[in-house]
């Protein structure tokens, strides 16, 4: 008897296992963005009421608040679509994980009986399947990256709206201070999302 680990427990996460860890992190980041998008929606609603109270002086601010509200719901939809792609990625990565586990076990058998023709045939078939699985994962990976890029462009627009709201707040007459505070919060929240999306873009999952 030895204290050697079995074939499937020998290494640190790599390949599909590492991809799965990256996906988990991406998913957490998406959840955080969805929560913030919900916050913008509430903030925008309050800003609309505030602009109505401020009257004609804050008409521009009201328009921007409406746009920000619409931005938050678009952002939520984009994030939900990203979530769907994440689920797809988990599916593909799980297939690869199981595939690599089984391949590891079979390779261990090959090291004991290298000349077994049945085993060689099975390995060849499995290698071909692995290539297919990897191709499917690459496709989902590209779709996910493209969706993250779309979300980034959307957030750029959100940033412009928040900055414009800051300018409009200055014309809010007696409500200027309140409007400036609200538009500052918008800006902060959009920046928070931008940082999260940048983190997503840099995920090692997209380097695989």
């Amino acid at each position: 008897m030895t204290d050697q680990l079995p074939v499937t427990l020998r290494s640190e996460p790599k390949g599909a296992a590492l991809d799965l860890l990256h996906i988990v992190r991406i998913n957490e980041e998406i959840k955080a963005i969805v929560a913030v998008a919900f916050k913008i929606n509430i903030m925008a609603l309050n800003a609309i009421f505030l602009a109505k109270r401020a009257g004609t002086a804050a008409r521009g601010f009201g328009v921007l608040s409406n746009e920000l509200r619409s931005f938050s719901s678009q952002l939520r939809e984009t994030m939900l679509a990203l979530n769907g792609l994440i689920h797809g990625s988990v599916g593909e990565v799980s297939v690869l994980l199981q595939d690599s586990r089984y391949n590891g076990v079979l390779k261990s058998a090959v090291s004991i009986v290298p000349l077994n023709s049945r085993l060689s045939a099975v390995m060849a078939r499995r290698d071909q399947r692995t290539v297919e699985y990897r191709g499917r994962l690459s496709k989902v990976r590209r779709a996910l990256r493209s969706s993250v890029d779309d979300a980034c462009r959307l957030v750029e627009l959100g940033g412009v709206l928040a900055k414009s709201a800051k300018i409009e707040a200055a014309y809010g007459a007696g409500f200027s201070a309140s409007l400036a505070q609200v538009s500052g919060e918008f800006d902060g929240v959009v920046e928070e999302i931008r940082v999260s999306l940048d983190t997503l873009r840099r995920s090692n999952f997209f380097k695989g």
């Binding site: 074939v7 499937t8 586990r101 076990v105 079979l106 058998a109 004991i112 085993l119």
Partner: peptide
């Protein structure tokens, strides 16, 4: 699964 290589061979 872990003992497959030993059984197979």
């Amino acid at each position: 699964l872990e003992i497959f290589p030993a059984v197979f061979s």
